[in-house]
Simulated scan of single mutants.
Amino acid sequence: MDFPVVRRPWVDTRLWVRQRISGLIHAQDRRNIIRPMTDAGPLSIREIAQRLNLDQTSVGHDVHALLDAGVLDRNADGAIEFLYDAVHVDFIITAA
């Protein structure tokens, strides 16, 4: 089964996801931000922090990193959105 499903038809999904998410998504805090945003609609940083029961400042730092990478988007009202239905990330961890 191939993931992710993207709502932007002009983007090559697999390439885009590999480039944008590979380094960012592996951080547990950032995965925790994305998970509750899936199909949640537009949210503010405050709402995301409340859903995660975390400090708004630390959530804001991670949200801005994900915004800068293009993983999250801002809508016209300034709310933050995760525009994907799902994301599948494969990675291998080996000894150094």
Rank of each mutant, 00 (worst) to 15 (best):
I80H: 01
V87L: 13
D77K: 09
V11F: 05
D77P: 01
D55L: 12
H64R: 10
I80M: 12
R35K: 13
R14C: 07
I21E: 06
V89E: 06
R46G: 13
R46W: 05
V11M: 10
D73M: 08
N32K: 12
L54C: 11
A95D: 13
E47N: 07
D90Y: 01
H26Q: 12
A69Y: 12
P42A: 11
S58H: 11
I48L: 15
G70F: 05
P36E: 08
R35T: 00
M1D: 11
Q19L: 09
P9S: 03
A65T: 14
V71C: 08
V59M: 12
V63T: 10
T94A: 15
H88N: 14
D39E: 10
L43C: 09
V71R: 02
Q56C: 15
R20W: 03
I33E: 13
I25F: 15
D2W: 00
D39K: 01
V63E: 14
T38I: 15
G41Y: 05
R14I: 09
I92E: 07
R31H: 01
R51E: 09
T13V: 09
G78L: 15
H26M: 15
R14S: 11
Q56L: 06
A69P: 04
D2T: 01
V6N: 03
S22A: 09
M1N: 05
F91P: 10
H88Y: 09
L83H: 01
M1H: 09
I25W: 11
Q28K: 02
R20L: 04
A76G: 05
S58Q: 10
H61S: 07
A79S: 02
W10N: 04
S58R: 10
A69W: 11
M1W: 05
E81K: 00
D29P: 07
I80W: 07
L54F: 10
R14M: 08
G60I: 11
G23S: 13
N75A: 07
V11L: 14
L67P: 10
A49K: 02
H61K: 07
A49T: 08
L72W: 08
Q50G: 04
